[in-house]
C-alpha cells in the first residue's frame, strides 16, 4: 500500500539551525495495516507524515502509494490518495464554511471541481446520516459554521471528512493531542471504529504509549529520523509501556527521555 524507501530530509542545510529530520527512513505498509507511531520529540514522526502528504519534497528517496510514485507530486494532487487529520483542530476544517459545505469539499477530494452545484440535496441527506454516527448531535447543525464548534467536534468532523471518500491511506498526526482526555478518548474510539468499518490502512502518530499499544495491529518506534522498532500481531498485543521504554534504550542506546510520553502512561 505505502512504500517509503531511503528517505532523507534535512531542514535548513548549511545553517546553524541545520536539522536532519529524516535519516534513511524505510517503511512498508500492507493493505489494512493500522500502524501506531511513537518516538521522542524530534524523532521525525510528523515529518514522516508530512513527507507522505507532500508538504515538501524529500532530499532523496522514493515514496509510492498503491504502486504510484508520488515523490515529486504536489500536495494537492496526492490528496486523492490520502485522508488527513492534523494535530491542530483548526487546521482540518474551513471555519468560515458550514459543516455540510466542509463535507461536500471533502467528498470531492480527487475529483475535478466544475461548475455544478457545490452541494446537492442528496449529499445533504448523506452527510446528516454520516454525522449521526459521531453521536455528537451535529446532524441537527449541518448549516452551522464549523468555526462555532469545539476542538473535539471539529476533530471528529475532520475525521469524518478524511474518510467520507475512502482514502488509500489515513494519516492521523497526533490528532487527539490538543483535546482534553475525555474528548481525546472519544475521538480515538471513533478513529478505530471508522478504520475498522471501512477497512482502511492508517498511520497514527501518538505521544501516548498506552494508546499506541491499545490501538492498531502494528506499532513502530522512531528515533533520529528512522524506524528503530517495528512489531505487529501477538507480539504487539503483549507490549507494555515499561517494555517499550526498555526497548527504546536498547535500540537507541539512550534513555527514553520524553516527559510527555512517560507522564501519559
Amino acid at each position: 500500500m505505502l512504500e517509503i524507501k531511503n528517505i532523507y530530509k534535512t531542514f535548513n542545510p548549511g545553517t546553524i539551525n541545520q536539522k536532519v529530520a529524516l535519516n534513511n527512513l524505510n517503511l512498508t505498509l500492507n493493505d489494512g495495516d493500522f500502524v501506531t507511531v511513537i518516538g521522542g520529540n524530534g524523532a521525525g514522526k510528523s515529518t514522516m507524515l508530512n513527507a507522505i502528504s507532500g508538504v515538501w519534497k524529500p532530499d532523496s528517496g522514493r515514496i509510492t502509494i498503491d504502486g504510484v510514485d508520488v515523490t515529486g507530486m504536489p500536495e494537492h494532487k496526492r490528496a486523492r490518495f490520502l485522508g488527513r487529520v492534523f494535530q491542530d483542530p483548526m487546521l482540518g476544517t474551513a471555519a468560515d464554511m458550514s459543516i455540510q459545505e466542509n463535507m461536500a469539499l471533502a467528498l470531492r477530494r480527487g475529483n475535478r471541481r466544475g461548475l455544478g452545484w457545490g452541494i446537492t440535496e442528496k449529499e445533504k441527506a448523506q452527510f446528516k446520516e454520516a454525522l449521526k454516527t459521531l453521536d455528537l448531535g451535529l446532524e441537527s447543525r449541518v448549516t452551522s459554521k464549523v468555526g462555532l464548534l469545539s476542538g473535539g467536534q471539529r476533530q471528529a468532523v475532520t475525521l469524518l471528512m478524511a474518510t467520507l471518500k475512502k482514502p488509500k491511506l489515513l494519516l492521523l498526526d497526533e490528532h487527539t493531542a490538543a483535546l482534553d482526555p475525555k474528548t481525546a478518548a472519544k475521538v480515538l474510539e471513533l478513529s478505530e471504529k471508522i478504520v475498522e468499518e471501512n477497512h482502511l490502512t492508517a498511520l497514527m502518530v501518538t505521544h501516548n504509549m498506552k494508546d499506541a499499544i491499545r490501538y492498531g495491529n502494528r506499532l513502530i518506534m522512531m528515533h533520529e529520523g528512522h524506524v528503530i522498532f517495528d512489531v505487529s500481531g501477538e507480539e504487539k498485543k503483549n507490549l507494555t509501556v515499561e517494555g517499550l521504554v526498555e526497548m527504546f534504550s536498547t535500540a537507541s542506546g539512550e534513555e527514553f527521555a520524553n516527559d510527555r510520553a512517560l507522564l501519559s502512561k
Binding site: 490528496a79 490520502l82 487546521l91 482540518g92 476544517t93 474551513a94 471555519a95 466542509n102
Partner: peptide, 11 residues
C-alpha cells in the same frame, strides 16, 4: 478560509 485544509482536500 484555510489553505492547509484546502490542500489536504486536493485543492
Amino acid at each position: 478560509s484555510n489553505l492547509n485544509m484546502s490542500r489536504a482536500q486536493g485543492i
